[in-house]
């Protein structure tokens, strides 16, 4: 240690100065403060954010899920429970029951990667706190969204390639660059769809 370092005071005062410098700089630059005044101001997470799940719908309003059990197989937390049924008219499989235990879920996005039908997406919704454990198990009623569900709140969804089969509803479109800026088409989702049962 040098002599001035030995003396305690010069370094202590120097440190004080540095802290004061930050304080005054921030006092005159309130807008540049790093603090996000949640909930008045919200941080915009990226378009890939892995939040709460949704099940997308076809144009006619039926759910795209065909109950193939791929998501529940790929899930490391085993938090997805599916029961398959058969549509008597179209002979097509569909989920009679589709439950996600949000408390078990680790939000790894493997279900989205595993889905061959473009049916399960994740949203940018992170405000999920619940006051009863039973409400954490969300079923079809909470998960299925209508076909016109806006793109804005959507998060992690298939990016391995463009979504051609189903059009761009919910997809990013071919060759369209990903956005990290705040989204303008920020139509809020229907709160009823988001509310736990």
């Amino acid at each position: 240690m040098t002599f001035s370092e030995r003396l305690y005071l010069p370094q202590v005062i120097g440190g004080m100065f540095r802290t004061l410098k930050h304080l005054t700089k921030n006092l005159f630059n309130i807008k540049g403060l790093p603090t996000i005044s949640y909930p008045e101001v919200k941080r915009v997470y990226s378009e890939r954010f892995r939040g709460r799940h949704i099940l997308t719908s076809r144009e006619d309003g039926t759910t795209r899920c065909v109950a193939c059990y791929m998501c529940s197989t790929a899930c490391p937390a085993e938090c997805i429970t599916i029961e398959a049924g058969e549509d008597q008219r179209t002979r097509e499989k569909f989920p009679v029951r589709y439950d996600i235990d949000l408390l078990r879920c680790v939000f790894c996005g493997y279900c989205v990667d595993a889905c061959p039908e473009d049916a399960i997406y994740m949203t940018r919704d992170y405000e999920m706190a619940i006051d009863t454990r039973a409400r954490a198990v969300v079923g079809l009623r909470d998960l299925v969204v209508p076909p016109n569900f806006p793109v804005g709140p959507m998060g992690w969804r298939p990016y391995y390639g463009a979504i051609e089969k189903h059009g761009t509803a919910g997809g990013t479109g071919i060759g369209q660059p990903l956005r990290t800026a705040p989204y303008e088409d920020d139509a809020p989702p229907n709160p009823d769809l988001y509310r736990g049962a």
Binding site: K31, P39, R43, A181, E184
Partner: peptide, 30 residues
């Protein structure tokens, strides 16, 4: 709903003005 963008020159973290709790679409959630 118009979204007000907030410039953050020293940060890569985008943010936007929201609404107070109990005012906007979050009302249903709270």
């Amino acid at each position: 709903m118009p979204v007000q963008k907030i410039d953050t020159p020293n940060s890569i973290i985008p943010r936007k003005a929201g609404v107070a709790p109990g005012e906007g679409p979050e009302k249903g959630l709270i």
